[in-house]
Design a protein around this nucleic acid. Structure first.
Length: 272
DNA sequence: CGACACTCCTGATGGC
DNA sequence: TGCCATCAGGAGTGTC
């Protein structure tokens, strides 16, 4: 599932190719993608606009339009964005095809139809309160993380997944970061020592950076904009490795459920 | 406000 | 082999 590293991989690819391109034709095949708006209205609204910049907020990909708004795209579980030089062939899970003035096409496809595409006003106001600090940005310090976790009684993993606190961490990188930091996912945020918070801070950034360097994790359906798989799935140390020996201590990796998510950990390296 | 359950979706999986 | 129930989960919403 696309998390920050996967969305960032897509962003970097599109940032090389989309700025300066004018949208000439929009075909929304699945009304759910743009609900509650109607596909023809969305098409008419976007056609003629020029994409000036490709940026990202957490897991939200943002295409800045020349009228000042952002076209926001969220891939959720199984969404994909594909950029092709020619018009794409019809495919079962195609939800929208955006034709650009150089003849290339941006295709949104999504098996499970959780993904969404919508227009938002540019700037931080829209995201304030909904999307928290960028974990790879300068504002995300160990002190900031400590403040976010201070007094929290929820499992620390639940807080890592809460997009209002930190933007872009999903189930994969939460598991990996907690393993690296040697913290049990069910520990409460408020129970972490300053040293543990520092370890977690470093581990979050290291895990996300590793994911970006690997071009994302293609566990299920994630592909980059050229249809290629990432390689981060091969570098995961606990996520999806239930029953296998821990790489650090050889104890069998456990799978438990935390915050309604399948959660992988080493019970010896990550004691409660 | 914080914590948590519920909901949306559909392909994959497991049991019988 | 076929059928059906269950599972997977990001984020928005509702409840206490």
């Amino acid at each position: 599932m696309p998390e920050l590293p996967e969305v960032e991989t897509i962003r970097r690819q599109l940032a090389d190719r989309l700025p300066g391109r004018r949208i000439v034709a929009v075909s929304v095949r699945d009304p759910l993608l743009v609900a509650p708006l109607a596909p023809p209205d969305v098409a008419a609204d976007l056609e003629g606009r020029t994409i000036v910049r490709v940026h990202r907020r957490g897991k939200y990909l943002l295409l800045r339009l020349d009228d000042g708004d952002d076209l926001a795209v969220h891939l959720r579980m199984t969404g994909r964005l594909h950029h092709s030089d020619a018009a794409p062939e019809e495919e079962r899970f195609q939800r929208a095809v955006i034709g650009l003035d150089d003849g290339s096409h941006l295709t949104f496809s999504d098996q499970r139809r959780f993904g969404r595409l919508w227009r938002v006003p540019a700037g931080p106001a829209h995201w304030r309160g909904r999307v928290g600090v960028e974990p790879l940005g300068g504002a995300f310090t160990a002190a900031r993380l400590a403040k976010l976790l201070e007094g929290r009684r929820a499992p620390v993993k639940a807080s890592l997944l809460d997009q209002r606190l930190i933007a872009g961490i999903g189930n994969i990188y939460a598991d990996e970061a907690l393993f690296t930091a040697r913290i049990h996912p069910r520990r409460t945020g408020g129970s972490l020592s300053p040293q543990e918070v520092r370890r977690l801070h470093r581990a979050i950034r290291a895990s996300l950076r590793a994911g970006i360097a690997a071009g994302g994790a293609s566990i299920d359906s994630y592909r980059d904009t050229l249809g290629r798989r990432g390689t981060m799935q091969d570098a995961l140390r606990v996520h999806l490795h239930a029953g296998e020996p821990c790489r650090r201590c050889r104890a069998p990796i456990q799978k438990i459920r935390v915050a309604q998510r399948g959660t992988y950990l080493c019970p010896r390296c990550q004691p409660r």
